[in-house]
């Protein structure tokens, strides 16, 4: 009931989030679950009515307010007619003067498509009847973001903080506003550094989940991807005298790890500025505990942050490899 929300005076559950007020007369733990217990003894999540259509709005509960698809007003054109007969979803019923459809419309129920936005309106009142994206300030989706980002708005090309090549597009090599952590244990190698001539990238395999700290405890997943490996091309393998399944050491300016070599033609050397640059592929699912253990690819990556959402740059850095173990 706390999650669903209730009126403070009599403790009665609210019907859905539209009944919540910002004046202290209602209380709610999390607004998106508002409406899952709309009344005494009712639990919308337990409903099992398949119904006739393909939406089944009376099967269980979907947040918020039992909407199966967010922003579903966008399935209709500005006049409120479905864009496509085959994909019709919600639409404006002029006769009854309300939104209707297969799903619960994610839009104020009786706001007609031709309603103008109120310039001084608060919340969705500022939106017109043809602005479907109700949680956005202007009610619209953006393909182009002129404000709010720390860089942009026009796209450009920077090389990763570590790159085997110079930026072929601009004199500026890398992002001027990426967050860097300049410490002794987090060095960045310069473009063309002969100690780290190869490109490395990290990625996931289907069988393990992120760092593997959960999936490596499942025997069924562990047997499918049991060991840390580095994917290299047959060309690089031949150059280094490495055979499939050999132990190799992968090093970067920040550390080195040992793992198996998986030699595959899926890895293709790049031709960059006339030079042949090899790429090493590193899944990052292993660690020091679990049914299967292995080296961590993240030990090699530079610590940095993208300026907007602070994701570190794992997808491209430079490295070297040699046959053998640590």
């Amino acid at each position: 009931m706390e999650m669903n929300g209730y009126t403070v005076r009599d403790g009665k559950q609210v019907a859905d989030f539209a009944a919540l007020k910002d004046d202290g007369s209602t209380a709610c733990g999390v607004w998106i679950y508002s409406g899952v217990f709309p009344g005494e003894g009712q639990n919308m999540a337990r409903r099992r009515n398949k119904g006739d259509g393909w939406i089944s709005p009376e099967w269980g509960f979907a947040w918020p307010g039992n909407r199966r698809m967010l922003y579903n007003r966008a399935s209709a054109d500005p006049q409120g007619r479905p864009w496509s007969e085959r994909k019709k979803y919600v639409w404006w019923d002029a006769a009854q003067h309300k939104w209707t459809g297969y799903d619960r419309p994610d839009f104020p129920d009786t706001k007609a498509p031709d309603t103008p936005g109120q310039e001084e309106g608060v919340g969705v009142d500022a939106h017109s009847g043809s602005d479907p994206f109700t949680l956005k300030a202007d009610g619209r989706a953006w393909l182009f973001a002129p404000s709010g980002l720390k860089d942009g708005p026009l796209p450009t090309h920077y090389e990763p903080l570590e790159s085997p090549v110079k930026n072929p597009v601009y004199r500026r090599q890398d992002s001027p506003i990426a967050k860097r952590f300049s410490r002794k244990d987090n060095p960045i190698s310069a473009p063309g550094d002969p100690r780290f001539p190869y490109l490395a990238t990290t990625y996931r395999v289907t069988e393990q989940y992120t760092s593997g700290s959960m999936s490596r405890w499942s025997s069924w997943l562990s047997e499918l991807m049991p060991e840390m490996f580095a994917e290299i091309s047959p060309e690089l393998a031949a150059e280094k005298g490495i055979k499939n399944r050999d132990w190799i050491v992968v090093s970067s300016a920040r550390g080195e790890i040992e793992c198996r070599a998986l030699v595959t033609r899926r890895l293709r050397p790049f031709q960059l500025n006339g030079a042949l640059i090899h790429e090493i592929g590193l899944p990052y699912h292993w660690g020091y505990k679990g049914l299967v253990k292995g080296a961590m690819a993240n030990d090699l990556v530079p610590l940095s942050e993208e300026p907007n959402v602070y994701i570190q740059e794992d997808k491209a850095f430079t490295c070297n490899i040699r046959k053998g173990r640590l």
């Binding site: 395999v205 069988e207 025997s219 069924w220 562990s222 047997e223 499918l224 991807m225 049991p226 060991e227 490996f229 499939n244 399944r245 198996r260 998986l262 030699v263 595959t264 049914l291 299967v292």
Partner: peptide, 13 residues
């Protein structure tokens, strides 16, 4: 599970 060994044969272990 049948065992945890990297086969080296693509992604089939």
């Amino acid at each position: 599970a049948d065992g945890n060994e990297l086969s080296g044969n693509s992604y089939d272990n």
